[in-house]
Amino acid sequence: MKTAIIIFLAALAASMPALADEAAATAGPSDERSALDAEVQGLRREVVDLNRDLFMLEEDLLFPASTQVAVFVSMDVGTFFALDSVQLKVDDKEVSNYLYTDREQDALKRGGVQRLWLGNLKAGEHEVTAFFTGKGPHERDYKRGTTLKVEKGVGAKYVELKISDKVSQLQPEFVVRVWE
């Protein structure tokens, strides 16, 4: 029994350098693999950056600052109003009719801002009208419209449609404002 153990230990000792070599050999390809992974990650990052630059270039080309108008929707609290849809008209022409899912309503309630429409308008006065549809206080169907005259100048124009709670009257409030 003793000799068997000695022979086993001797064999184990003899195989140690071979195991060490094998370990060294496997460490090489794994290093190489991690270097390759880093290279691929770098390439992926470059592609993402390139994609972002292309997107911005495309927006600059399609919607130059001189004519660009963007309309955003935001919500503050939203206790008295559950948003279902927003219809947007510019100079009496419908440019967007957007239905909100539960997830989108939730995102707006948590402070998200949605770009509802991005378009081009020539310099001068324009009328922006928004119709909000949804459920108001006591689960009643609720529809409200709000209008704003926008003076389009040289630079880009940003319009915000904000839904907030008017606590004093227990009613929702719809505000349109232009970002300076």
């Binding site: 279902d84 957007y98 239905l99 909100y100 899912t101 539960d102």
Partner: peptide, 9 residues
Amino acid sequence: ALASTSGSN
């Protein structure tokens, strides 16, 4: 995007 019979979109 469509409305559903349950009222959700």
